[in-house]
Amino acid sequence: MSNTWKNPDMARRIARRNAAERRFKALGLGAIVLSLLFLAVLLFIMLKNGLGGLDWAFLSGSDATDASAAGVWGAAKGSFLTMVVTLVLSFPMGVLAAIYLEEFAPRNRWVDWVEVSINNLAAVPSIIFGLLGLAVFINTLGMARSSPLVGGLTLALMTMPVIVISGRNAIKAVPPSIRTAALGVGASPVQVVFHHVLPLALPGILTGTIIGMARALGETAPLLMIGMRAFVATPASGINDPSSVLPMQIFLWSDEIDRGFVQNTSAAIIVLLVFLLAMNGLAIYLRNKFETRW
């Protein structure tokens, strides 16, 4: 038996293994480059088509039948109001539900059933939420059609499960030793949660919330159902006024035949992307600010 590590068989095996490593790295790099390439092309086309249309009149105006007079302010304001309604409803409700399920709920069949339902709710197609919003908020409760209030309520239903799920994961990631430490000095279970667990879980909860909000911001289908596709020429002055939202405005303009609306569509997409980037930036900022290392 010659030296195991010096015979040619072993050298070949090692060479094969190194080649496999190189192939895998190349494949991974390729996947990233390809997806970034698509994004870059998309951004390039949008900027090329839309940048010319981005002026103060466009940013401050509202929808109009004439492409050169149409602006994005009405839709942006509608999106903003809708997001405020969504956030105010879904964040406290989602966080409280996550805390209850993770820290206080007894382990039984009912709670299992609630958990499964919430997980399924996060996967329900958004158009279904639109139908629900139409049936409950508008037809049954008689709220104003096309309003940011109904839009926000509908999107809150959609966003809440996302916040519950990310909140539960963030709460689960807090080491149990922190809970026992607080209980050990005589903190009550609610004090344990609000003094220790929640502050440590907050970065994760905020990240999940903003991801959920960003999804809601880009959502069009459920808002179609509740009438937010109407032509609205004046910005909403409150959450009960008829309004449009940015993705809906993009959808409406993309249907127009007039050349001027092609530029408007691209310009509105740029505005929406800036909106989204700002929200994601905020998520990263908040996460870093509240992050505690232990």
Binding site: I178, A181, L183, G186, S188, H196, T292, R293
Partner: peptide, 19 residues
């Protein structure tokens, strides 16, 4: 039990200071 745990304090296996 909350008041009891203040009267009967506890030190754990792994040091677990609050962050």
């Amino acid at each position: 039990p909350v008041a009891l745990r203040a009267r009967v304090g506890m030190v754990f296996q792994k040091p677990n200071p609050f962050p």
